[in-house]
Write a protein that binds this DNA or RNA. Structure first.
Lengths: 204, 204, 204, 204
DNA sequence: AATGAATGAGACTTCATTCAT
DNA sequence: CATGAATGAAGTCTCATTCAT
């Protein structure tokens, strides 16, 4: 350490980070396709283009990998908080862009992974902690958006603010489940009703 | 012996049905606790009080067991259709009993199993078919309830009717996810907002 | 036992014999199709139209069933000895009917069972004893046929007599193997050469 | 390290080949002793000195192992073709060395395996293909030997050439069966008659 | 005589993980 | 850093056999 040459550590660590990311990407793909237990380390190593043994240089166990996936998501959420907080006229934007949000919810591939992780968190305390933490950050941010978005209208009681945020998220999360249970759901009709519901949640 | 009535067949078949139910109960419990792939046939057989080998007299495979769980749920849903269809003043009842519905959604134990099955259906075509079929039945029933509940108000277009039903279910299903991601969610505050949302979905 | 009524025992025992035969027939069919280890008692019971449990009233074990098959064959061979011993002009008949013998050897279905039993006898001492016993009876009979068939020609030394019989049987048994290894073998051409070989074995 | 030559691949692949051979040897031994279905993967792994799981790095399944045995035999047969094709005065050699051939046929150990494989091929299409292919190669070679061995005598019709080859092989294969069915068979007397039969098959 | 429920051992196979190289 | 050989535990499922009825 502190060797005379300066590059190696930085190079190594950036290489390591990139290898880690490779693993996380591969694992996310595999978990989505086959589920956490259904995906083998061999699957992941193949997808990552790396020997299974080597993955253990970066992650202690298969559990640690799914933990890594959630941690990375958490980091991304945290990073996005600031950048997105500044947007003006939030409500109009949210309702206007409801279609994008809905489409994200109707993407069964991403939903499968999300639910996979959630279900697994039911049985893995460490994973649960990560999931809860990530959720708390996202929820807080959404509350803040709503508070700001209401502008000079009288402030909502904290409880109700959170309840609205919860139901807003619940609606989108619920659509994930709907998309999986009913592959023929009518997107256009839903979007219309969804917009009304959002409008009331935000503006009433 | 030589008794005039020979019940054995009926006795046997009722015994078989009861053994089947034992397996399904045990499996549901195990899948909930450990997940479909995490729960072993040994776990299930232990919980069911029956040798693992014997379970295969009733179910062809582990897959068939989770299929059996969904089929049983479907039968229960179907059975409830008639009994619930006759209730008068549906909307008022639905909004009034929203707390019960919400509590069902916030029961993380039942949610874990429900999501487990749903996630597994992502990777098991036969299971997916069962899930979709059960969903179609439930959805149709809800639409009918809404149609009747609206009484002499102008009929909703079919599309919108379905969209409202979808969002109604989505809201409750979404709360399942919320309960898992945020164990501290404030039930009372949510109930209030939930009732408003339901009221609009049904009565607007 | 020795009950005043006379029929039951005989009826029962004939019924038992018939049930036994059912099992042996079914087992022979199953072993032929799936092999001794590949055929399950469930397979046999299904084919025999009898519950698996009941089979154990007639046979102590699966091993005993294959033993029963060989014993039955042995009895049949023994029974045939006398009836066939009397035929006049044996050699001519044998060579003339070589085609029938060859066709029997080329029947892959019966060969599969025969080899199955033989191979199993390699690993089952009791079965081996039965096989050897049956073979000894058949071989002795064939030697006798040859001796008689040679009429007033000078008697062959015992050794050579047996050797000729061995090779005669070997030729037909070998054709069983050939039929399994080469499904396209040319029967007509073989028959011609076979006849010449038989002729020399018997008449030289 | 940083040695100029990097042999690992070649070393590894030779190691892999040797491990494969270990498995095939062990499996051949186990199949011979207990039969294909009677021998467990645990038996094979114990005999091979290798964990059962590791065998699956080399063979996809137990079926693939018996297939590997046949493939290896086929390779050996093919390899011998050239080396043996060149021998002069084939017939005399064949008849002279009939004792060696007969002894091979009378080796019940090798016969048990050979028949085991043959019987299994009755129920395994892929294995059957391999067996037929190996047989075709061996048969063709024998025909060629006979054709050449006949020197300037008038050529045999193709049909008869094949028929003679078939019966030649059948005779030796039949002796395998004889050795198993009659452990007391008189080798010396048989050898004498066998030589006469061979002589006629080849020289007539 | 006959059934079929029931078991427990054991079959093949997969897999997370370790370690020498 | 990187590999892949290797393992041992565990998984699903089958099956010969027993026994109450």
């Amino acid at each position: 350490m502190a060797a005379p040459d300066n590059k190696p550590t930085s190079v190594d660590s950036s290489r390591a980070a990139s290898r880690c990311a490779q693993v996380l990407d591969a694992a996310a793909e595999c978990f989505r396709l086959k589920g956490f237990h259904g995906a083998s380390m061999a699957d992941i190593s193949r997808t990552a283009g790396m020997s299974a043994g080597h993955i253990y240089n970066y992650f202690d166990s298969k559990d640690a990998i799914i933990g890594g996936i959630v941690k990375r998501e958490l980091r991304e959420i945290m990073a996005n908080i600031e950048s997105l907080e500044a947007a003006p006229d939030t409500f109009h934007a949210m309702i206007e862009h409801a279609d994008e949000g809905m489409n994200r919810s109707l993407d069964t591939r991403s939903s499968a992974l999300k639910l996979e992780v959630l279900v697994e968190s039911t049985r893995n305390a460490e994973l649960a902690t990560l999931v809860h933490e990530a959720d708390r950050a996202a929820l807080a941010r959404l509350c803040e958006l709503i508070r700001k978005g209401r502008g000079d209208r009288p402030a909502l009681p904290e409880d109700e603010l959170f309840a609205r945020a919860e139901l807003l998220i619940a609606t989108f999360d619920g659509l994930r489940i709907r998309a999986l249970r009913n592959p023929q759901l009518n997107q256009d009709a839903i979007l219309q009703v969804l917009r009304q519901q959002l409008d009331r949640l935000l503006n009433d």
